[in-house]
Design a binder for these strands. Structure first.
Length: 452
RNA sequence: CGGCUGGUAGCUCAGCUAGUUAGAGCGCCUGACUGUGACUCAGGAGGUCGCGGGUGCGAAUCCCGUCCAGCCGCCCA
């Protein structure tokens, strides 16, 4: 006998047991439903692609995080580490076959050979929506509208006395170009460091951000002064959007600064017209988003009663995507839902609908002689669209079957012994309360449908 | 990659100044209950004490190594 293989998991990888898979799938389906309501089409692409494709826009830092290997044909391949690079490939490859703007959503696993930590895995899911091929700010606004709709859907189960609570903080990267101009920073790499420090403001606080900036070798007193003034005056979130926008516009002054403010105002206006309540939208000049491929609108979404969990959904406008694979570049704007974090937060807040079973009803088998009618009963229920599980043992005691239903948290149980059968009835047991009542076999499906 | 803490039953852990057959609670299975889960009672199954080596008459317990997990730092969204 060979030694038993030790069952175990690779570091950073997870099993999704039914208990976590059921709420997860439901949430994913609900989110996909929102995307489709806005006219986004599903897209899927391979999880493994040629390494040069997946590496096309990756920096050296990201390259290290990519699972890369040779396949049996000595081809240099890699596991995708995000979804947008494949979107870019698809757009270049089927360019003329796809309408513009091209609106797609994609949900699936990606892999990063990163050091796993709290809430960080080497295999995790991304849910992306992107609009490619239009520079219209309506697209930016629609992203905010989709964002809001997803948050409403995700928080559906909040109790009535607890209003759904989230806020979308948004900004425009052009603002930082204006800030760079005003501060007289000529080196883009240094400005990138500045943006990263500002982006961390939430995490490390104003003092921490200042300390980081002051310690930066490439920044002089004048640079720092402008940045400090900017942060000090703009950081007050209690002001209304318009007030802060006016302040920022007046301070930055320049052409690019004006353009940034104009864009922000336009996106804000359209998003409101699309039905996003204005109190959900907060113009926040400190939102920057880490990576520097963003060129315009950027935003991050938080649950206001779980701010410390960080953003559960974020996105922005970016260019230079399709250009990697095609001659002509295309403007794009998109959102990414942090599905794992979102689930964690919803669970924490007790508003994640949990379940251990797909079945709504367990059909028990009273004894061997009544098995056949139980089989038929289950069939009838299924034909009516009810998830009906049949207990798969003719000789199991009722006690055992009920214990099974309890363990799987199946809400209803159908019992049909000789007594019921003689009357053309079944007993319908509510597993939550233990109450049971007779129900006619004819029309049982409708009876159950009325309950579940 | 660096630092810290920890790995004992399915789960949470006790035992760790070395001393005969390794414990508890919860969970699981069976029965009391030949038509009914959750409560109660009785019984039962389940453990290479992470792995390897060392020191002892003797190691879950001490020493070394190693792997794994968690937290912090670094890096990264």
């Amino acid at each position: 006998m060979p030694r038993k293989v030790e069952p175990r998991l690779l570091k950073g990888f997870r099993d999704y047991l039914p208990e976590v898979m059921i709420p997860r799938t439901r949430l994913l389906r609900a989110i996909a439903g929102v995307f489709e309501r806005f006219g986004f089409e599903p897209l899927d692409t391979p999880t493994i692609e040629y390494a040069d494709i997946l590496l096309a826009k990756a920096g050296p830092e990201q390259e290290k995080l990519i699972y890369r290997f040779k396949d049996h044909g000595e081809r240099d391949v890699a596991l995708r580490y995000e979804l947008t690079i494949s979107l870019a490939r698809v757009l270049a490859q089927y360019s003329t076959d796809l309408p513009r703007p091209f609106k797609r959503y994609q949900m699936g696993p990606v892999w990063r050979a990163d050091a796993p930590g709290k809430g960080r895995y080497r295999e995790f899911w991304q849910c992306d929506v992107d609009i490619v091929g239009t520079p219209s700010l309506l697209a930016d606004a629609e992203c905010l509208a989709v964002d809001h709709a997803v948050m409403m859907e995700a928080q559906k189960l909040r109790p009535a006395d607890e209003p759904r609570t989230h806020v979308i903080r948004f900004n425009n990267r052009k603002l930082f170009r204006a800030l760079q101009e005003k501060a007289g920073i000529t080196d883009d790499a240094i400005m990138a460091d500045v943006i990263r420090a500002i982006d961390k403001l939430d995490k490390i606080g104003k003092e921490g951000a200042f300390r980081e900036l002051a310690a930066h070798a490439g920044l002089n007193k004048t640079n720092l002064g402008v940045i400090a003034t900017f942060l000090n005056t703009m950081i007050d979130v209690s002001m209304g959007n318009q007030v802060r926008l006016d302040l920022v516009g007046a301070y930055l002054g320049s052409e690019i600064g004006k353009l940034a403010c104009q864009e922000i105002a336009t996106v804000l206006k359209h998003a409101t017209e699309m039905g996003v309540p204005s109190e959900r939208l907060k113009f926040d000049p400190t939102i920057a988003r880490g990576l520097d491929y963003y060129t315009g609108t950027v935003f991050e979404t938080f649950l206001t009663d779980a701010m410390d969990y960080g953003s559960v959904m974020s996105g922005g406008r970016y260019d230079g995507l399709v250009g990697v694979f095609a001659n002509q570049d295309e403007p794009a704007v998109g959102i990414s839902v942090g599905i794992d974090r979102l689930i964690t937060v919803l669970d924490e807040k007790g508003i994640l609908k949990k379940s251990k079973s797909s079945a709504q009803v367990l059909v028990t088998i009273f004894d061997a002689s009544s098995a056949e009618s139980a089989l038929k009963l289950a069939q009838t229920l299924r034909a009516a669209g009810i998830n009906a599980e049949l207990y798969l043992d003719k000789d199991a005691k009722l006690k055992k079957q009920l214990a099974y239903a309890q363990r799987k948290e199946i809400p209803w149980v159908v019992i049909a012994g000789p007594d019921e059968t003689a009357r053309g009835e079944v007993t319908l047991r509510d597993m939550k309360t233990g109450q049971q009542q007779p129900a006619k076999v004819d029309g049982l499906a409708t009876t159950i449908q009325g309950r579940v």
